[in-house]
């Protein structure tokens, strides 16, 4: 009896990857557009610092999401140079 080749799973197809990126960009775009239609609650109204007023600026959360995550990834990547060790690093310790 010959083995039937395993049926390829749909998400492995390269077209799905393209569609995924398209969907991701569309979602991001939609989230930015939505901000035009809502009235955002103002943060730190009693504070006079420039940063406090910046938190109320258009697209603050867009920048926050992207910059914070990129920053975290870069920080982790940088720290990884000297924090990452082989799995047997502690093998000779109690």
């Amino acid at each position: 009896m010959s083995e039937t080749p395993e049926k390829p799973f749909v998400p492995d197809k390269p077209t799905v990857s393209r569609r995924f990126w398209l969907a991701l960009w569309l979602t991001c775009g939609a989230s930015v557009l939505l901000e035009f239609f809502v009235h955002r609650h103002e943060h730190f109204t009693t504070s006079e610092s420039a940063f406090a007023s910046a938190t109320n600026g258009f697209g603050f959360y867009v920048a926050l999401g992207f910059v914070a995550c990129s920053g975290a990834i870069l920080l982790a990547k940088g720290l990884g140079w000297f924090l990452k060790k082989k799995e047997d690093f502690y093998d000779d310790t109690p």
Partner: peptide
């Protein structure tokens, strides 16, 4: 917005997040 752009950052930097068989100090 924040979640969508966090996801975007994840997939943009995905090659940098490639897993390695390591532990961290």
């Amino acid at each position: 917005q924040m979640l969508a752009f966090s996801a975007l950052a994840f997939f943009v930097f995905l090659p940098w997040l490639k897993r390695t068989p390591t532990i961290s100090i």
